[in-house]
Design a protein around this nucleic acid. Sequence first.
DNA 1: GGTTTCAGTGAAACCGGTTTCACGAACATA
DNA 2: TATGTTCGTGAAACCGGTTTCACTGAAACC
Lengths: 331, 331
Amino acid sequence: MSNRRVSLRWVAEQAGVSPATVSRVSRGSAQVSPELRDRVLRVIEESGYRPNHLGRALAEVRHGALGLVFPGLSGPYFTELLQGFEAEALETGDSVLLLASHYRADTDAKVIDLAGRVDGMAIHAGTVSDAVVEEVSQQVRVVMMCGTANRWNASVSTDNTTSGALTRHLLVEHGYRRLAFVGHPEGSPDVTSRWDAFLAAHHEVGVAPPVQPVRVGLQQSDGVIAAERILAEGTLPDAVVCANDETALGLMLCVLGRGLRVPDDLAVTGFDDMNMAAMVRPGLTTVRQPVRELATTTARLLTDPDTRPAGDLVLPTELVLRGSCGCRPGG
Amino acid sequence: MSNRRVSLRWVAEQAGVSPATVSRVSRGSAQVSPELRDRVLRVIEESGYRPNHLGRALAEVRHGALGLVFPGLSGPYFTELLQGFEAEALETGDSVLLLASHYRADTDAKVIDLAGRVDGMAIHAGTVSDAVVEEVSQQVRVVMMCGTANRWNASVSTDNTTSGALTRHLLVEHGYRRLAFVGHPEGSPDVTSRWDAFLAAHHEVGVAPPVQPVRVGLQQSDGVIAAERILAEGTLPDAVVCANDETALGLMLCVLGRGLRVPDDLAVTGFDDMNMAAMVRPGLTTVRQPVRELATTTARLLTDPDTRPAGDLVLPTELVLRGSCGCRPGG
DNA sequence: GGTTTCAGTGAAACCGGTTTCACGAACATA
DNA sequence: TATGTTCGTGAAACCGGTTTCACTGAAACC
């Protein structure tokens, strides 16, 4: 594990200086005379010395790492979240420790263990219990993603109420009356808010919402399952509001494969505005949310020593109209 | 960062024993009399003491962490790889440090830094230069994924030659003569092998292969781009062999959206056998590769102290025939 | 010329654990 | 009773860095 036994003290001995001086040269933390610095640098160069990360971290009382806790991983949403978080962490020289709990039985223990290895931790809402969040918050700085702030830590999320604007658009502009919702409100806080906004828009406009959502997960394959369930019901709804783009695309792929037309036979909408949304035919009407910014903002709240994060930070989202809801492209 | 100043020595003082005894109780490494053990355990319980991870790691000369280096992250393939790797690492109590280089300019430096924080490192082929792999290999155990072994470390990959079997199937069983290949052979070692096998099968059967592949990335949106490029060429090929399922699905989504029929107007095949492949209509003919096993095997090679990994480990893959190549479902 | 600064340096303490080693007591053997 | 084991324990060294503190010699000031 260690660099061929070249330690700071060994370098000091070779260069004929004290360990303190090597440390000062190595990290540039204080003035060292040119002569000694050159001697030390030469030894470092020749031996390929690299400061041991554990020793340094122990002395600095700082891990130089951030933790990221997910419920699981799938699709471009999490990919983007992960990339954004990692990019921001690398910017400040921090490493990323990943914990994709995937609903393991021992998630709580793993999260608590993780807290002992990082300086800050981003936790995706709905992954771990409040009790564990509280315990962890007393050890390291925590920021919740897509949840709400609490006594101990801040949160960053995106504005899910635009789902309401989207629903109103379908009801008012297009005059659709029978809408379906694809997603599992109890499965994630994000879907909960979107379903709530979907219901609220119905009440506002005075149209009866569906009694139940079509409860499926958030993957593309879940969209196919949802499509089959909807098609099996006899009468088609006018439009389907999907909890995210992934399911919307899976649903489109399925209904197109059966020879149905979108939006003529069935309008479809998503949420995310991922890459594919603009590329399919018809283009997918959706809500654009700044996923990468969500991730980078979270990471910055964790690393920035100045900010004492508190409260909810809600990033704006935007309705994106394309062809799949019935809007004419370019009109 | 530390647990409210409760250190091992503090616990020792409270319990009236030596630090050594607390260490022995805490890790169960040696016999301690019931009386002293109880005293120590009581103090630990009451104070909520947890051994500091850095101190322990420094003394044990072991990080308790594995590194995972990716070229980037996208799609179900990397998701599965990540999940498998993480699950296996957690099994042995190791954490996962992620580095999704994403072709940053300072990737090499980050990889070298990462090497100082982990006990072992899995590197996806094509991510970092050979020189860096060599340097890192001298510090920690390294296993290459999807590449070939070299002087310093082993590799784990899947059998890409089944692409050849798939190509032969299209040429011989279905009698297709004009095949297209979607993927960027220079972009990743996996695609290189698949393109090579595609060419070899053509030569074997005695059919002229296409002069050039359709060079696009591995995401679903790249499949849409490829489809548009192919459709723009005037005459359609008989079949399209895609470098992975993602692009195949994107391509299918695009051609279906244009009113073309699969496989009647255009046969399509993929590689991976991801979840969606069996769910679309028509089902996607593809090659099943054990992605999760690839990941878990790699992780196991890194953690297992017994095995001295060497050479190439190639996991078997399997041709999966569904409707998209022209085979009749169930026939 | 004497007194302040001040930059440069090393000894030693420290971060928080683990482990070797020596020692004493209890027990088993001759 | 004398001798040899075994067990439990604490002192101290160690992992590999950082940092405080005291001290030196040289430059700046009056």
